[in-house]
Design a binder for these strands. Structure first.
Lengths: 347, 347
DNA sequence: CTGAAAGCGCTTACAG
DNA sequence: CTGAAAGCGCTTACAG
């Protein structure tokens, strides 16, 4: 039964009052007589009473629990966003339940169903997909999308201007004199990757450099995929002097693959990432990348969810944050090559 | 009230049976007549009924929620352990609530109190401290310590043989010919750091190299602290040709600090880490480190918690896993120096 | 300021 | 195989 802890009934008996009075003494101390209050407090102390949250929830139907849906908990990018979420959640007496979906929709669904079972009040999703439940208006629940977004979905979403961020990265390379700039993109199921590629192409066109599809290769956000994509790029025989990667992990992979082929970064090839995770500044060479306001994104997302809790009819909105290009050591000027071109068919 | 979803009562009415029958049809289908079963199922479908988890919990007093106490969610080492925890939790229909304590005991206490409020069934703690509640036998709750442990605590703990791991790392350096081996240790509030330092000293003594306290510097597990500690070490004017760091992040910091002083790794100084987080193989140079079975540690810890759920009187035990030295590119043979010693007072 | 009572939505002996 | 009823531990109108 109730192995640990006393119940409100026992406290009431010990204090010689009704359970109603105990409940009031805890929730709304001002409305009980001071003398009663102290009797109740003493009983609480003696019995080590802690209210059973489940019972409170059942009565009030608020779990004070929020689920954070994260595609990959092992990516430090998300850790920082989560920290932001936790900070404002805790400040508002909410706890966050972390769901690592590993980009798998079944695991995603498992966590979403906790909402249906009323085990959590709402969700902050960092995943590029909207749960189907949100489509049916009768089963709507408090939901906020952060970092990722779905273009036509009518849900509050907070993310960065990915097109502009990618343009900054690419323009930086162009300014350095690069013309043959490759792109390692992320999965196209993620709108932000579509946007980043768009920004890349836009910057190229603006500089009157034609977009060459052979200079674009696909990854899936992992370091390993960055290694593979770079290998592909090089084996296609296209010359390239710079690579813009859709995230930092893939940029690490690109640098590793380049190094394995005795190509120096940035002397032979410049590399730019996206996200600015905490290892980027420590890598060698330190990575030039497009920084997202990770912590702030998390904070704002949780704040948005809180707003929805406060007003279920609040209108969904999109909030777009700016990025910042952080120039470090992985990018350098394009240099006139004496002798062989930096990268050729048979590297 | 109950904005979303139907209640068991509505399902019962729709199916023309009692709520008891609906409950049975869901929990234990075999004991209801097939025809009744299908009527109930149809009603459930039509109403989109999902049982209210809170009510079930209140009745059964099992939340099917477990809290994982993590000191620093942004450290990829923990991400992998968490993955292991989540995997076996989910396989057993448990969800995990992630508590990022940031090495802060107040935040730790906040999550522990969820247990007292019966909002979770137990905790897997990755933190080097035992909650005070566990001392008082009356308020004991299911608790497992993983990765870290407290020597005299009578709680089930799963961790790696840190002394042996540190000895492997240090002996590896000794075998390469190094004699002046420094150590960057972690916080002494963590027993595993005490153990790692012990292993370092033991390996030294075994090789008849005396332990020199000036070759030991303190960090706090962060990359930044690794940079600082290395700076200190170098400014002390002690010669050194290798550094064993108590974790990978500090090793990254050490490499960065060395590089900033134009010291090559491993030509001038060899560096070894501990943990083998997923970035270690991708760093340049790839880090030699002591690998922990992170995923397995998480899996086993959750399994241990499940055992405690099954039998509250199960006896606590300690389970120690082996480590594996992974030799990569950050360590190399000590070389006879022509001219100046590798590191001198005034570098 | 306080108490008796209803009820949140389930599960589960107890009868039949 | 099924139903009526108690009860998990709270909160909160409703009276007084």
């Amino acid at each position: 039964m109730n192995r640990r802890g006393a119940t409100i009934r026992q406290v009431a008996a010990a204090a010689g009052v009704s359970v109603a009075t105990v409940s009031r003494a805890i929730e709304n101390p001002k409305i009980v007589a001071p003398e009663t209050q102290s009797r109740v407090q003493r009983a609480i102390q003696e019995l080590g009473y802690v209210p059973n949250a489940q019972s409170q929830i059942l009565r009030t139907s608020r779990t004070r629990l929020v689920v954070a849906l994260v595609p990959d908990i092992a990516n430090p990018f998300f850790s920082e966003v989560i920290r932001g979420i936790e900070q404002v959640a805790n400040a508002n007496r909410y706890s966050v339940l972390l769901g690592d979906t590993q980009y798998d929709s079944a695991r995603e669904q498992g966590y979403i169903s906790m909402i249906a079972a009323r085990q959590a009040d709402g969700v902050v999703s960092l995943v590029p997909r909207i749960p189907k439940e949100l489509a049916q208006s009768q089963s709507r629940f408090p939901f906020v999308n952060a970092c990722e977004y779905v273009p036509d979905a009518n849900v509050t979403s907070l993310y960065v201007d990915n097109v502009a961020g990618a343009m900054k990265a690419t323009s930086h390379l162009i300014t350095l004199g690069h013309r043959r700039i490759a792109h390692i993109r992320g999965p196209m199921t993620s709108q932000i990757c579509v946007d980043r590629q768009k920004g890349y192409e836009q910057a190229l066109r603006r500089a009157r450099i034609s977009v060459n599809k052979s200079l674009i290769s696909a990854g899936d956000f992992t370091v390993e995929s960055g290694i593979r994509a770079t290998g592909e790029l090089l084996s296609r025989g296209e010359e390239l002097t710079a690579i813009f990667c859709a995230n930092d992990d893939m940029a690490f992979g690109a640098m590793q693959a380049l190094r394995a082929r005795k190509l120096d970064v940035p002397t032979d090839v410049s590399v730019v990432g996206f996200d600015d995770i905490r290892y980027s500044r420590h890598f060698h060479p330190a990575l030039t990348t497009v920084a997202q306001p990770k912590f702030e994104l998390g904070r704002s997302a949780m704040a948005a969810l809180l707003e929805i809790f406060a007003d279920a009819n609040a209108l969904p909105y999109k909030r777009v944050f700016a990025t910042e290009l952080v120039v470090r050591d992985s990018t350098g000027p394009w240099r006139e090559i004496i002798g062989p071109k930096p990268v050729r068919k048979s590297v």
